[in-house]
């Protein structure tokens, strides 16, 4: 190694290197600095700088990987601690979990009711007889789904669909239309 002169890499670069390497005593950063100085003496400033910056760039993926790895380790530890705490205080964790589930469930139910009320205009004269009719088509015609055509309205006015049945279905399903529909319960249109 050529010992004639000492050269230092730029301050910001060596700080960055320390950050990227994260060694307890910063010994690798010291090695890099010595190597840099020797490179300047043997092959010139440009080559030395190019080597040093190349090293900086190369360290980035490793740092990202390490960040991901240690984050995962941290979250795994949180989960372990949480599970152990739950198991240690079984009674209180059961009560807590049960209470939280009921609270969230009731929030969802309230939300569904409010959304249902807010979806329909109540200012019409016969508001209680105004229905939202959804039309769902079977596979080859699925592009027709989602809207309601005048023909479907005609089914009601022509008397081929029982108003009473529609009202009853509305009462039962109410805010849970989507829920019933998801179990394949007939929508009004397909009943018709």
């Amino acid at each position: 190694m050529n010992q004639n002169h000492h050269h230092q890499p730029p301050q910001w670069a060596s700080r960055l290197l320390e950050l990227l390497i994260q060694d307890v005593a910063n010994t690798p950063a010291g090695d890099y600095e010595e190597y840099y100085s020797a490179l300047v003496n043997s092959s010139g400033l440009r080559a030395a700088r190019r080597w040093y910056f190349g090293q900086l760039l190369r360290l980035v993926p490793e740092r990202i990987g390490a960040r991901i790895y240690w984050n995962m380790a941290m979250w795994r530890n949180y989960l372990t601690v949480g599970r152990r705490n739950l198991l240690r205080n079984r009674v209180s964790s059961t009560i807590n979990l049960f209470g939280l589930s009921v609270a969230i469930a009731s929030c969802i139910v309230v939300f569904l009711f409010v959304k249902d009320f807010a979806t329909i205009d109540h200012f019409h004269e016969h508001a209680e007889r105004v229905f939202m009719v959804n039309h769902e088509a079977e596979p080859p015609f699925t592009h027709l789904s989602g809207g309601a055509t005048a023909e479907i309205g005609l089914l009601f006015t022509s008397g081929r669909v029982n108003w009473r049945f529609a009202e009853a279905f509305w009462l039962i399903s109410g805010p849970f239309k989507a829920f019933f529909a998801s179990f394949g319960c007939a929508t009004l249109a397909s009943r018709a």
């Binding site: 010994t27 010291g30 100085s37």
Partner: peptide
């Protein structure tokens, strides 16, 4: 083990 801090290493020790 770590050596003493050294100027030619930017005040960092050797391992």
């Amino acid at each position: 083990s770590l050596s003493e801090a050294r100027a030619e290493r930017g005040g960092r020790p050797k391992r």
